[in-house]
Amino acid sequence: MEEKRITERESLEIITSMIARTKERYVGDGNILLMWGYVTVAVAVLVWIMLVVTRNPAWNWLWFLNGIIGGIATPIMARKQDVSFGVKSYSDKVTSHIWSTVGITAIVATLCCLAFQLVLHICCWRTMLVFALVIVPFAEVAQGIVVKETSLIAGGAVGLCAGIITICSIVGGVPLNVNWFMPMFIIAFICMMIVPGHIINRKNKAQR
C-alpha cells in the first residue's frame, strides 16, 4: 500500500477491506491453558500418591507448587503470546480481565485460608478446592462464550459439575476421600485445561 490520493469509493473499499482483514479470530494460543492443566494434574497426582503412601496430610502443602509455578509462568507466557499475535482485540481484553480477577481471587482466598489456619487454628483449605472447581471453570465458560470457543465452554461445564459435587459433599458432610475426589479433580482439569488447550493450538495451527 502506498501513499496516494484516493477517491471516496476507494476510501470505502479500504475501510471494508481492513475490517475484513482484522476479522480473523484468534482465541490466543492454548499454551497457558496447557501449562496450568499439566502443572495442576502433575501436582494433584503427586499429592495423591504422597497422601496414600504416607497418610500424612502435611503433603497437602505441595498444592502451593501449583500457584508458584503457574503464577510465575503465566505473565511470561502471556507477554510472549501478545508479541506473537501482534494484536489485541476487545475480547482479548475482556478475557484477560476475567483471568486477572480469578488470579486476584485465588491470592485473597489463599491468604484467608492461611490466616484461618495460623490465627484461628481452623482448617478451611477445602475452600480452595471449591475455588478450583467453581470459580476457575466459571471463568473458563465465560471466556468460551466471549471468544465463541466450544471446547472451553464444554471443558468449563465439566469442571463446574465437579465443583457442584464438591460443594454438595462439603455441605452434606460427605468426606472428600482421596480415592474418589482426586481422580475427579484430575479428570476435571484434563477436561478444563488440557483438552481445550490442545484443541485451540490445533485450530490456530490450521488457521495460520
Binding site: M1, E2, E3, K4, R5, I6, E10, S11, I14, I15, S17, M18, I19, R21, T22
Partner: peptide
C-alpha cells in the same frame, strides 16, 4: 483521506 493512514485507522 489517504490510503495508508485510512487503512491504519480502520484497523
Amino acid at each position: 483521506h489517504s490510503q495508508l493512514r485510512l487503512a491504519v485507522m480502520s484497523i
